[in-house]
């Protein structure tokens, strides 16, 4: 017996999703215009406060190898780094690489599942801040025009 939630939860789905983050915290953070307008991933990481991040295998990034639709690419990130306070997602070849920056208040589980828009095949990079240290990992997602298979 396969039970799918969709038919049961249609109406109340939104409520569950919002519960993951604390909107108050988000609103409290100032909109980092410089970082979100940066044209390269290096600049965006620097401006968002993740400059010089060290590679880490404790950030688990779950993304498809090939995007089914470049306009809504699922990205799932878990940080296993203790004391994670924020987590940013970058699509390296987007015109503005910084896609999102999430802040976690005390005790919030550093887990994010979202969809991002990608212009073309590129590495999706995640940066994490824990204490005064920054970490990063990345994975290439291919965006293709499709067709012709099989």
């Amino acid at each position: 017996m396969i039970l799918q939630r969709r038919p049961f939860l249609k109406g109340i789905a939104a409520a569950f999703l919002v519960g993951l983050l604390r909107p108050v915290e988000l609103l409290a953070a100032t909109w980092n215009k410089t970082a979100f307008s940066a044209k390269t991933v290096m600049d965006a990481m620097m401006d968002a406060g993740y400059g010089g991040a060290a590679d880490s295998t404790d950030i688990v990034l779950k993304v498809p190898d090939i995007a089914e639709d470049g306009s809504i690419v699922p990205v799932e990130v878990t940080s296993n780094i203790p004391g994670t306070v924020s987590m940013a997602i970058f699509a390296e070849k987007n015109p503005n690489p910084l896609v999102a920056d999430f802040f976690f208040s005390d005790g919030a589980e550093p887990y994010v599942a979202t969809h991002i828009k990608m212009a073309k095949t590129s590495t999706v990079r995640v940066a994490v801040k824990a204490g005064d240290k920054v970490y990063t990992t990345g994975k290439e997602i291919k965006v293709t025009i499709g067709g012709c298979g099989g």
């Binding site: 190898d65 089914e68 099989g150």
Partner: peptide, 24 residues
């Protein structure tokens, strides 16, 4: 199943489903 069905073939045939290799 073929992991890239919605890419190689029309996605509108299975609009509510997602595929992929899914190693985990």
């Amino acid at each position: 199943a073929f992991p890239y069905t919605p890419i190689a073939n029309p996605r509108y045939m299975t609009p509510d489903w997602t595929f992929g290799i899914q190693e985990d």
